[in-house]
Simulated assay, not measured.
Amino acid sequence: MKTANRQEIATTLDELRAICDTGFALALHIRFTRPNILYRTYPQKWLDYYSDRGMMIEDPVVLWGLRETGMVRWADLPDPAGIVAEAEAFGLRNGLTCSVGPNSSRSISGFTRSSGPFSDGEAEHLLALTQRLHDMTENLSDL
C-alpha cells in the first residue's frame, strides 16, 4: 500500500475515534458473509459478550447492512432479539449504521457515542467516511 494511502486511512480512523467516543466497527468488503477487514473499537467486554452468544446472526444492524445501503439509526430498526438494547447496557448508545458497496463486496459500519444522537449532517458525514474507507481498502487484507 502506498504511504499516502496508509496515512489517509489512519487519519480517517482517527477522525472516527474523535467522533465516536464509545466506539465503532468497520466490516469492510464483506464477501460470502465474511469481511476482508474487520476493525472494532467497541469495549472488549461487549465484543466478548456479543461473540460468545453468536449475536451476529440475529443482529438487526448486520442484517440491515447486508440487505440495504445508506444509513439507519439503530433506534429505527426492529430488534426482536434485543441486541441493540443489550448493546446499550454496555454503553453503546445513539447507534448509527452505514452500508455501502455492491452485494459482492459490501462494507458496513456501526458508530456510537455518548453525547446524543448523530444529526442528519453528522450521519451523512459518517456515510461519506464509510464510503472513503471502502474505496481506500478495496485491495487490502488488513489495517
Rank of each mutant, 00 (worst) to 15 (best):
N94S: 10
T11F: 12
D135Q: 14
G101I: 10
N103K: 05
S114I: 09
P80T: 12
E58G: 04
L47T: 10
S107R: 05
S107Y: 09
L127S: 14
V62F: 06
P35H: 05
S107W: 10
A25I: 07
P35A: 06
T130P: 02
W74G: 04
R17A: 12
H125P: 01
G121A: 15
S109F: 12
H134V: 06
S107T: 15
D79R: 04
D120Y: 04
F111M: 12
A18F: 02
P102F: 06
R113I: 13
D59V: 00
Y50C: 02
W64H: 04
A85T: 14
E58T: 06
E88C: 12
W74C: 07
M71E: 07
N94K: 08
S51Q: 08
Y39L: 14
I57G: 03
F90K: 01
G82S: 11
R31W: 00
G101P: 08
I9H: 03
R132F: 07
A75K: 15
F90V: 04
R93E: 11
S114H: 14
D79L: 03
G82R: 09
A87E: 05
L38W: 13
D59P: 04
S109D: 10
R132M: 12
I19R: 06
W64C: 01
A123H: 11
F90E: 01
L77Y: 08
R93C: 13
G91D: 04
E88L: 06
P43D: 13
T12S: 14
S109L: 11
R67K: 15
F111Y: 15
W74S: 03
A75F: 10
G91W: 00
T22E: 00
S51M: 03
E68H: 15
M56T: 06
R67V: 00
E86N: 06
K45M: 03
L26Q: 03
E122R: 15
P60I: 05
A89I: 00
G54P: 06
T97A: 15
F90H: 04
S51W: 01
E124V: 09
N103P: 15
D52W: 10
D48C: 01
R40C: 08
D48G: 00
T130M: 04
G116W: 13
D76N: 12
A89W: 02
G91T: 09
Y50K: 05
V100N: 01
G116R: 13
I19G: 00
R132I: 09
L63C: 07
L133G: 09
M56R: 13
D76K: 11
L38Q: 14
L96R: 09
L26I: 02
Y50E: 02
G54E: 13
